[in-house]
Design a protein around this nucleic acid. Structure first.
Lengths: 337, 337
DNA sequence: CGTCATTGTGGAATCGATTCCATGGAATCG
DNA sequence: CGATTCCATGGAATCGATTCCACAATGACG
């Protein structure tokens, strides 16, 4: 299946490859006659330009890379969708890589993106500068989304991790909770670190119990949410409220509560992370810390387009908000025996 | 940021580009001296081969395309993950496209995949042969996954849509349900068609009511699940059980039941589609028709690899099974007044 | 009516890697 | 020891599109 080249088109249209190329790229200096002949030849032969050859000659590929930690996380699935649709508006195709919350696969994909000569990269990175020297030195225009790595000078669009957590802690202490268990994200990510720090600060500034046993370090995947819920609920003085730092860990933790017959809402209050649709279906529905994923994805693409145009990009932080639902009800007065 | 080419490497190592290329591609005929010199030059210069140039000369790109209808559907997110990991095992990078349940975007991505000269394509297509002539005529090695288009000769790996639905209908009629509402998928997809047909056949062969008003035609997206639930529950003689043909429509429909204060399990039985984790968290947990997504994704890649090796591929159908949970309880005897 | 821009065109160079072909030197064999 | 194979190597062709450059034809203008 040797494919049709521009030479075949040129021969069929009775012009040179130069003219054929000019017609195809809508160069102004082409005669109507040549245009017709070439267009007809293209249609008849089913010619499809070879993107490899084109981008070898031009320096651009009309392709952007998108590197995400876990596509099965609904938050990132939504983000991928938003990025992809917006990139499309600008005529870019998205080359997608799934790092699987794994440093090694992340590096491998950085390599692939560089080899494929993507025009720019949108990444939700993990680790520190060390793992990114390859990308940083390459000069590949890059934007961080959701997660950030400090000291790299890479512009980013990320959620305000602190206010959401603060609002959640205030909400829970306002309801009377004093032991609030926290299932944290990995400290190799900025979101994991900032959220944990915000939790610790908010707890310290509140009447709630600040003992470290109330923090479980997870890895943003469902299994660790389950493990965290077990660990926290097994404490001699179990927390009366749980807070999880992402949606997958929330799912894992809620599963464990159900398994153990601990009723969310009445027996333990629960605040989840990310407003995924399934959380509204729970009974009671889940109180969550939510972000505008769509705005984040679109914003990342727009920022990258600015960088590609040589304009200086300003990092942005998007607000989070607390959506209060049934999983964090008013605490009932305890009735004495 | 002019990037480092193999010529720079060759000059630095004091050899020709031909020798440098041989070292890099591990050609046997290279001297240890040349190998060392080239490897050192590569490391010092941070050389990264240009994938465009390479695949222009070779005929292969080490890239496969993956075209899915909607990455926000957890079923397809899981599928994407499975495909991507398995492709990685074979040394392929996955170029991912999201058709957004939309024929136009699907065609656009077929175009992109052809231009990018992916070595092969895995697609969950929609529409009929007409929309695929481009791909079919191009001779691009293709495998269908989940969805199928008949009469194309393209090998496929798909779920057994019929037995799952049959089992669900049998389960519901066995519980005593006689009016079973069905929220169907779009008839432009094989899964939508086969599941609806299986529902109709199963209903016809059962004591249940076969009136067409019990079928609502959705489009595999959450909003249509919601609309379907409203329509069915608004019927003068509302169904006592609901069955939805995919996970997003299930989510939409469950949301509507909650909104209307109709308790799933006690007031209406519900069977969802696809075993996504969040469904196990519902109270009661959802009875679902489930597939082995991981096997489907891995199988698709393996099948494509076979096709690429020139071996004839055998289409496969993977079993579905009914997982019975709390949303379809024993019907209580109605107590007379 | 000559000069000068403008426009459409084709030939050939180019992008960066791979690979065919020819060559010189070393190793092997009768 | 001469003939032959084998190996490592460099020069040059190649993949398919774009684009620089040169040139001819046309039109505009003083």
């Amino acid at each position: 299946m040797r494919s049709v080249t521009i030479k075949d088109v040129a021969v069929k249209a009775g012009v040179s490859t130069a003219t054929a190329s000019r017609v195809l790229s809508k160069h102004p200096s082409t005669s109507p006659a040549a245009r017709n002949a070439v267009e007809q030849a293209v249609a008849e032969l089913g010619f499809r330009p070879n993107a490899q050859a084109r981008s070898l000659r031009k320096t651009t590929t009309q392709t952007i890379g998108l590197l995400l930690p876990d596509i099965r996380n609904p938050f990132f699935a939504d983000l991928a969708h938003a990025v992809e649709q917006r990139a499309r508006d600008f005529g870019y195709v998205t080359l997608f890589g799934n790092a699987n919350e794994n440093m090694e696969q992340q590096e491998r994909y950085f390599d692939v993106m560089l080899s494929q000569r993507v025009d720019g990269l949108i990444a939700a990175p993990q680790g520190d500068r060390a793992g990114l020297v390859g990308i940083l030195e390459s000069g590949l225009p890059t934007v961080f989304v959701d997660r950030v790595i400090e000291g790299t000078g890479v512009p980013s669009i990320s959620p305000d991790n602190r206010t959401g957590i603060r609002a959640a802690v205030a909400h829970l202490t306002g309801l009377g909770h004093r032991r609030i268990g926290y299932i944290a994200g990995p400290q190799s990510t900025s979101t994991g670190r900032e959220r944990l720090q915000a939790y610790q600060e908010a707890i310290a500034a509140s009447p709630a119990d600040a003992s470290p046993e109330l923090v479980y370090l997870g890895d943003f995947q469902a299994a660790s949410g389950a493990a965290g819920a077990h660990a926290l609920l097994d404490l001699p003085d179990a927390p009366t409220a749980l807070l999880a730092a992402d949606s997958l860990m929330s799912i894992g933790a809620i599963g464990v509560c159900n398994e153990r017959g601990i009723s969310i809402g009445s027996e333990v209050a629960f605040v989840g992370y990310d407003d995924i649709e399934a959380f509204t279906l729970l009974n009671p529905a889940l109180t969550v810390i939510a972000h505008d994923v769509d705005a984040m994805g679109r914003g990342a693409v727009e920022m990258l387009v600015d960088v590609l145009a040589g304009e200086p990009a300003q990092s942005r932080v998007l607000p989070s908000r607390l959506i209060i639902r049934g999983s964090t009800p008013e605490l009932l007065e305890e009735v004495g025996p």
